[in-house]
Each structure stands twice: as structure tokens, then as C-alpha cells.
């Protein structure tokens, strides 16, 4: 059977596969290759070390001459390491915040009357369908020194001097939390909503308080949703560029921004590539966890 599949059927199978290999996998190999090259003042601005025409012997001889310059620089210059650390810290904090806001929201929607759930869920994820840039931009007007938050706090009399939130890590944190909240709510909702009512009823019959039902039944049963939601926020947030660029200040270090600056401003392609390779290595573990969660979901 499988030997005699018609051409058209094989095409359906191979086309998306080939597409992903060409436009997703191969590009990463090129990034690795260029990260091992020397920066140069040419067009394109790098000195290739490995080329396709060398053949096997050429390849072997050149492997010895691979340039680790970019990686050396990356480790020597504490700024990059600080940027990785600060990205991890901000992404982790933002993940906690989205969970803190997202869980009560998802829980309330999942426990709303059945007829309301779909509409409320749509309302919770609708911002995801609007422009990401605009949602981040909306916070500038709120957080800046002469912005709405300071104006409101000063009018009420809580503070007398404007708070400096804009251009700080706090602003970046708020921005990430806001922009990624729908990604948290969606998996949480589906993992809470599908829990059978009978379990909670049984616990209540046996005398459990609503509080302990929540902590001992609802939360543990929604673990898959919590894991998926946290990874969906954490992984892309580490490499975020737009939010630190618009809301953060000059002292805000995030690795996505470092990569962008190396590439577009300094035109150091090998450096940008090695920043990307190290970021990818950092992401291998969370990505593997995420894929495992996805596969488990696909199978169920």
C-alpha cells in the first residue's frame, strides 16, 4: 500500500515537510555557520569560513580554522551575559504575573454559566487579534512621566512627584504581561473547563471546603494548562525585542534587543548569529518541555 501511493498524495505529504526544512531548519544551520565567521567590512558583512565548494578535504582543513571570535567576545564582554540573565529574569517574572492574573480570569470564565463561556473566552483572547505594536504602544501614554497613571495618582494625592515607570524594567514587565496574557488564559481555560463536576461534588460531599477543593482538586488537575501557558509566555518573552525597545530604557538589557542592535546598528552579522545560537541553546530545554506537552495533548 505505502509503496504505491500516487504522486499527488506524496506531494501533499512532502511539500509542507520540504518547506519547513528549507525555511526553518536550514536557516538555523546557516546561522551557526555565520556565527563561526569573522566580521568584515564588506557586503554581506562577514568573511565566510565554510563554503559549499570546498569539498570534504577543504572542509576538514577549514574546520581547524573556524573562528570562535564572536563567542570569545560574547563571553568576555559581560554585557551579553548580563543581557541573557536579565532576559531570563524578566521573562520569568512576567510569566508569574501572567499566571497570577490569568488564572483567576480563566477560572472565572470556566466556571461561568455554560451559555456565557464562549463569549467571555472570545472577549479574553480578542486583544490577541489586534495589533501587538498598538497594545504595547498603548502603555506609553499610561506609564510615561506626564502620563495617565501619574496624573491619576497625583490628582488623588497618593504621590506628589511623578513615578518614573516608563523606560524602566517595570514598564517592560508590565508590557510583556499585558501582551502575552491571552496565551496564558487559553490553555488554562481548556484545562479547567474540561474537569468533571463530579470530582468537586464528591469532595464537597466529603466535607472539603471550597478553598481546599480549589487548591487540592482544581489546581492540580489544571497542571497541564499551567505548564503549557507558562511555556507559551516564557519562551517567546525571553527573545522579545519590541517591548524592551518601546517601553524599556537605555539600561534595560534584553537579549532580543542586543541581537537587533548587533545586526541592524553595528552590522556585525557573526556576533548577531552567535547571540542567536546561545539564545537557542538556552531555549532547548523549555522548548523540549513545550513540545512534550504539545505531543501529549495531540495524543489525548
Amino acid at each position: 500500500m505505502s509503496q504505491t501511493r500516487p504522486i499527488s498524495e506524496r506531494l501533499i505529504f512532502w511539500l509542507p515537510f520540504a518547506w519547513l526544512v528549507l525555511f526553518f531548519l536550514v536557516p538555523f544551520l546557516i546561522v551557526v555557520k555565520i556565527s563561526l565567521s569573522q566580521a568584515a567590512l564588506s557586503q554581506p558583512p562577514y568573511e565566510p569560513v565554510l563554503t559549499m565548494v570546498d569539498g570534504w578535504d577543504g572542509l576538514l582543513s577549514k574546520l581547524a580554522g573556524l573562528s570562535l571570535t564572536s563567542y570569545d567576545l560574547l563571553i568576555e564582554d559581560g554585557l551579553y551575559l548580563a543581557a541573557y540573565a536579565s532576559s531570563l529574569r524578566l521573562a520569568a517574572l512576567a510569566t508569574c504575573l501572567t499566571l497570577l492574573i490569568g488564572y483567576p480570569l480563566a477560572y472565572a470564565i470556566a466556571r461561568a454559566p455554560v451559555g456565557w463561556r464562549a463569549s467571555l473566552l472570545l472577549l479574553a483572547v480578542a486583544p490577541f487579534w489586534t495589533s501587538f505594536l498598538i497594545r504595547v504602544y498603548a502603555w506609553i501614554a499610561i506609564l510615561k512621566d506626564e502620563g495617565l497613571l501619574n496624573w491619576a495618582l497625583m490628582t488623588v494625592g497618593i504621590i506628589s512627584e511623578p513615578l518614573q515607570i516608563m523606560a524602566s524594567d517595570t514598564a517592560v514587565l508590565i508590557g510583556i504581561t499585558y501582551a502575552y496574557l491571552p496565551f496564558m488564559v487559553l490553555p488554562l481555560y481548556s484545562s479547567i473547563e474540561r474537569q468533571p463536576v463530579a470530582l468537586r461534588e464528591a469532595a464537597a460531599d466529603l466535607g472539603a471546603s471550597p478553598w481546599s477543593i480549589f487548591w487540592r482538586i482544581t489546581v492540580p488537575l489544571s497542571r497541564a494548562g499551567i505548564v503549557a501557558g507558562c511555556l507559551l509566555v516564557f519562551i517567546p518573552a525571553i527573545g522579545e525585542f519590541v517591548i524592551p525597545d518601546l517601553l524599556g530604557g537605555s539600561q534595560t538589557l534584553m537579549i532580543g534587543k542586543s541581537l537587533w542592535v548587533e545586526f541592524f546598528d553595528n552590522r556585525d552579522w557573526p556576533m548577531a548569529s552567535s547571540v542567536a545560537v546561545v539564545l537557542l541553546i538556552l531555549l532547548v530545554l523549555p522548548m523540549a518541555l513545550y513540545e512534550r506537552a504539545q505531543m501529549a495533548q495531540v495524543r489525548s
Partner: peptide, 26 residues
């Protein structure tokens, strides 16, 4: 195959963007 389907969903866009550009240049 399925890894390549799921990975771009969470991959930081700066990495995907950079790698695609380097492919087009190559």
C-alpha cells in the same frame, strides 16, 4: 516533522527573522 510544526509557534521572532534573512542572503 511535528517538532518543526510546534517550534516556530514559540520561537523568538528575532531568531526566526535573522535566520531567514541569512538564508535569503546565502
Amino acid at each position: 516533522f511535528s517538532s518543526m510544526i510546534f517550534a516556530p509557534l514559540v520561537m523568538p521572532e528575532v531568531i526566526t527573522g535573522l535566520s531567514l534573512l541569512l538564508l535569503f542572503v546565502a
